[in-house]
Structures are given as structure tokens and as C-alpha cells.
């Protein structure tokens, strides 16, 4: 591998085209060598970052609710610490549910990388590729791994798994929340979960344990995204901010068509 060629020192650089300032609509035209692929549309990107913020808030406040670690002294009238933690938790939860609603809507309205089928690697091709992707991450013949524009089968499995965890969190959360207003809307809609799971303490336990699923997922997810960005140099991190990434025109992709 040789170093990338740079212009000779002192050579005039060709003018840079800034183009339209309407960045949101600007799609870089294919240059011949590279093409910018628009993968993640706005609802998905907003949903991702709002959900990420919510998950951090929910985990922090949730652990306090589970085991309160600050204890204010004095009269109970002077403090409302648990009250505020619960308030933040519930607001973040409501926002998180809304991101979930957006995601579900986008399962049907999104592009082919975002739609429902993209969540499940169930085709024969996907099964075969799944093992090659695992080998890729284990650095066994990584150059032979299939390349995907969108999510590879392993990503599909893990992200779908996290969607399921999120759904369970929402359901168990509402099951507990509803008990504060018996007969109310949330109680009526979700209280069946409590007996179905074997009692409210079990629901609380499941809700608590699943928090850790997020906390285990986050470092792996962030690392693999950083790694892909660093190694592949196609702007993987940027794709969840700008919506797309650059791919070489000569490269073959499993999900190109």
C-alpha cells in the first residue's frame, strides 16, 4: 500500500465548489470515483439521536430510582429529589416512546434500508453472509467478507434485538407507571403485563435488567461504528449525522440493487 498521492508542494489547488448552501437537500453528485449514498433519512437520524439522549437520561435516572444514592437532609418539604428524578425519567420515557412511534412509522415509509424487511436477515444469502461477517469481526479473512451499503446481517440482528429490548422496556415501564392511576388509560392498556410476567416485582426486575442490555450495547455499538469509520474511511459516523456515506464506484455491495 503506498501513501495517498498529494499535489506537489506549491502547486495551485483547483477551486473548491461550494455549491448550494441548502446543505440539507444537497446530495454530492457522483464524481466517477466516489458516490454519495443517502442511507438514513431525517426521521431515522433524529430518532436515533433523541433516543440515544433518552437512553442515557433514562439509565441515569432509572438507576437512581432503583437505588437512590443521594439523600438530602432536613425536612421533606425542602427536597423533591426522587420526585425530580422520576419526572425526568417519565419525560424521557415519553420522548423515547415517541421515537419508537417514529421508528415504527418509518418501518413502512422509509427507504429500503430502513423498512421492515431490513430488520430481519432471513434470506438464504443473509445466513451465509452472517458467518462471513462474524469472521470479518474476528479478523479471519476479513477481505472476503461481503460488503453492505446498509446494515449487514449481524447489525440487523443486533439492532432488531435492541428494538425488542426497547419495546420490552416501554411495556414494562408502562405496566409499573400505570399502577399509580388504577383504571386510567395506561393502567387499562398495560396492567395485564404485571400478572402475565408473574407480578409487579418481576416486571420491575425485567425493567432493571434490560437497562444493562443498553449499557452493554452502547460501548460495543460506539466502538464498532468508530472502527468502521476509521478502517473503511467512507464516513460511517457521518452517515448518522448527514444521512449518507461515500462509497467507491468500483466496490460491489450485496444490497446494492
Amino acid at each position: 500500500m503506498t501513501a495517498p498521492s498529494h499535489p506537489a508542494p506549491g502547486a495551485r489547488r483547483p477551486p473548491i465548489e461550494v455549491g448550494s448552501l441548502d446543505y440539507a437537500r444537497k446530495v454530492p453528485p457522483p464524481s466517477g470515483d466516489y458516490q454519495w449514498i443517502y442511507l438514513w433519512e431525517k426521521p431515522l437520524r433524529f430518532m436515533h439521536w433523541i433516543a440515544a439522549l433518552c437512553i442515557v437520561l433514562l439509565a441515569l435516572t432509572g438507576f437512581y430510582i432503583g437505588r437512590p444514592y443521594f439523600v438530602p437532609a432536613g425536612d421533606p418539604g425542602d427536597a423533591y429529589l426522587m420526585g425530580w428524578f422520576r419526572f425526568v425519567h417519565f419525560v424521557a420515557a415519553a420522548l423515547f416512546v415517541m421515537t419508537g412511534i417514529v421508528r415504527v412509522y418509518w418501518l413502512f415509509m422509509g427507504n429500503r434500508f430502513e423498512r421492515l424487511p431490513a430488520l430481519f436477515p432471513v434470506r438464504k444469502r443473509d445466513f451465509r453472509n452472517l458467518f462471513r461477517i462474524v469472521k470479518f469481526y474476528l479478523m479471519i479473512e476479513p477481505e472476503k467478507a461481503p460488503k453492505y451499503l446498509g446494515h449487514n446481517p449481524l447489525q440487523q440482528l443486533s439492532y432488531t434485538g435492541m428494538y425488542l429490548v426497547a419495546a420490552l422496556m416501554v411495556v414494562t415501564g408502562f405496566a409499573m407507571y400505570g399502577q399509580s392511576n388504577p383504571g386510567g388509560l395506561i393502567y387499562t392498556a398495560f396492567n395485564w403485563v404485571n400478572p402475565a410476567m408473574g407480578g409487579a416485582p418481576i416486571v420491575r426486575f425485567v425493567h432493571h435488567v434490560l437497562t444493562w442490555a443498553f449499557l452493554i450495547f452502547i460501548p460495543i455499538h460506539v466502538y464498532l461504528a468508530l472502527r468502521a469509520d476509521a478502517l473503511e474511511r467512507t464516513g460511517t459516523i457521518s452517515s448518522i449525522i448527514s444521512g449518507g456515506r461515500f462509497v467507491e464506484s468500483t466496490e460491489e455491495f450485496v444490497d446494492a440493487e
Binding site: 444493562w212 452493554i216 460501548p219 460495543i220
Partner: peptide, 24 residues
């Protein structure tokens, strides 16, 4: 307790990630 196990797994994941980065 569940938090001990959860923290161990999360730390394990982070350590695994670091090891994977080094291997990469």
C-alpha cells in the same frame, strides 16, 4: 445481585471492545 452481574457484563463488553481494538 443483578447490578453486580450487569456491571460486570458492561465492563466485560468495554474490555472486549478495547481488546478488539488492540487486535485490530
Amino acid at each position: 445481585k443483578v447490578d453486580t452481574i450487569g456491571a460486570a457484563l458492561a465492563l466485560g463488553a468495554t474490555a472486549g471492545v478495547a481488546a478488539h481494538a488492540a487486535a485490530t
